[in-house]
Simulated assay, not measured.
Amino acid sequence: MGFFLRVGQLLSTCVSFSLGASLGIWEEGMGNWCMFIWCLCFALNLIISVVELCWLQSRLPCSWDGFLHAYSFYFAIICIVTSLIFGTSYIQFFSPGPTQNRAITATTFSCVAALLYAIEVAWVCVRPGDMVCFVPSFPGALRRHIALENYVACVIFAFISNTDLYLHQPALVWCVAVYWICFILGAVNFLVNGCDCDNDKKLPLPVPCLLWVQTVLSVLLYATAVILWPLYQFNEKLGEGSPSGPAI
């Protein structure tokens, strides 16, 4: 089952990436983001496939099932968000014909990849093993909140992929840095928990403590971004007349 899911994920992301490249969308901000996501999914799938084919997962100091669950959970949402962004940004602007058909096909295969990731999440949960897919506690809900936070960050990244929106103003550059810092911290925290590292004595801090530190730090950083981005992006005096940025 895992082998067929992996092959399907590789093929679907490869087709989406190839069709997107044939459309020349890498020259635009939205297209760059979609191409990056499909390429990242394909590359990570290829690495995971090599690890499983060589039976290297037993040598890793973490729960392989936990890693697959966290990884698939993330990319299922990221792929469906990418499909929506790509579909709404490109399909309607192409005239009917081969170009529009390629855009529709790329969007369809991206949705297929999202579906295959979702199936893998369910499969990892139901197959025999010690995988716990959800902890019915406040820390467990907090981890899901971090995942949701990162999904929203992916949508923000797609809309700020045009560097002309913020490079003219240091305050806006800080906001983009905040989005990336919080996204990386959340991804690391979610994957560490997904790999069942809660009881790993090698970590400098226990995972619950890391979770709280990451949450408080993200709240403080996002608070600065929520204030600075509208202030400098939509105010002509402070933002040098650039009111065309995305709303936060």
Rank of each mutant, 00 (worst) to 15 (best):
residue 4 F to W: 13
residue 6 R to W: 09
residue 7 V to R: 04
residue 8 G to A: 14
residue 11 L to G: 07
residue 16 S to W: 03
residue 17 F to E: 10
residue 18 S to A: 15
residue 20 G to Q: 14
residue 21 A to E: 14
residue 23 L to F: 04
residue 24 G to I: 10
residue 25 I to D: 03
residue 28 E to R: 12
residue 29 G to Q: 13
residue 31 G to P: 03
residue 31 G to E: 07
residue 35 M to N: 05
residue 37 I to W: 11
residue 39 C to W: 11
residue 44 L to K: 10
residue 50 V to T: 12
residue 50 V to P: 02
residue 50 V to R: 07
residue 54 C to Q: 08
residue 54 C to L: 15
residue 55 W to A: 11
residue 60 L to Q: 05
residue 60 L to G: 07
residue 60 L to M: 15
residue 63 S to F: 08
residue 64 W to H: 10
residue 65 D to L: 08
residue 67 F to T: 08
residue 67 F to A: 05
residue 68 L to C: 14
residue 70 A to K: 07
residue 73 F to E: 14
residue 75 F to I: 07
residue 77 I to W: 12
residue 81 V to K: 02
residue 83 S to P: 03
residue 89 S to M: 12
residue 90 Y to R: 08
residue 90 Y to D: 09
residue 90 Y to F: 15
residue 96 P to S: 05
residue 98 P to K: 02
residue 99 T to P: 03
residue 99 T to D: 10
residue 100 Q to P: 03
residue 100 Q to K: 15
residue 100 Q to M: 12
residue 101 N to G: 07
residue 101 N to R: 14
residue 102 R to Y: 09
residue 102 R to P: 02
residue 104 I to V: 15
residue 107 T to C: 15
residue 109 F to Q: 09
residue 114 A to N: 04
residue 116 L to T: 06
residue 117 Y to S: 09
residue 118 A to V: 01
residue 123 W to T: 10
residue 123 W to F: 12
residue 125 C to M: 10
residue 126 V to L: 14
residue 126 V to N: 01
residue 129 G to P: 10
residue 129 G to W: 11
residue 134 F to I: 13
residue 136 P to T: 03
residue 137 S to L: 04
residue 138 F to K: 08
residue 139 P to V: 06
residue 144 R to S: 11
residue 145 H to A: 15
residue 147 A to M: 06
residue 148 L to W: 05
residue 148 L to G: 12
residue 150 N to V: 13
residue 153 A to E: 08
residue 153 A to C: 14
residue 154 C to V: 15
residue 155 V to S: 12
residue 155 V to P: 04
residue 157 F to S: 11
residue 158 A to C: 12
residue 159 F to Y: 06
residue 164 D to F: 01
residue 165 L to D: 03
residue 165 L to P: 01
residue 169 Q to W: 00
residue 174 W to Q: 05
residue 175 C to A: 04
residue 178 V to C: 07
residue 182 C to E: 09
residue 186 G to P: 01
residue 187 A to M: 02
residue 188 V to G: 05
residue 188 V to C: 13
residue 192 V to R: 11
residue 193 N to A: 06
residue 194 G to D: 00
residue 195 C to H: 00
residue 198 D to I: 03
residue 199 N to A: 13
residue 199 N to C: 10
residue 200 D to C: 13
residue 203 L to Q: 13
residue 207 V to N: 01
residue 207 V to S: 00
residue 207 V to E: 02
residue 208 P to D: 02
residue 209 C to D: 06
residue 210 L to H: 02
residue 214 Q to A: 13
residue 217 L to N: 10
residue 218 S to D: 10
residue 222 Y to Q: 13
residue 223 A to D: 11
residue 223 A to N: 05
residue 224 T to K: 02
residue 224 T to H: 01
residue 226 V to L: 08
residue 227 I to N: 01
residue 229 W to F: 00
residue 229 W to S: 02
residue 229 W to D: 00
residue 230 P to Q: 03
residue 233 Q to Y: 00
residue 234 F to D: 00
residue 242 S to M: 08
residue 245 G to R: 06
residue 245 G to L: 10
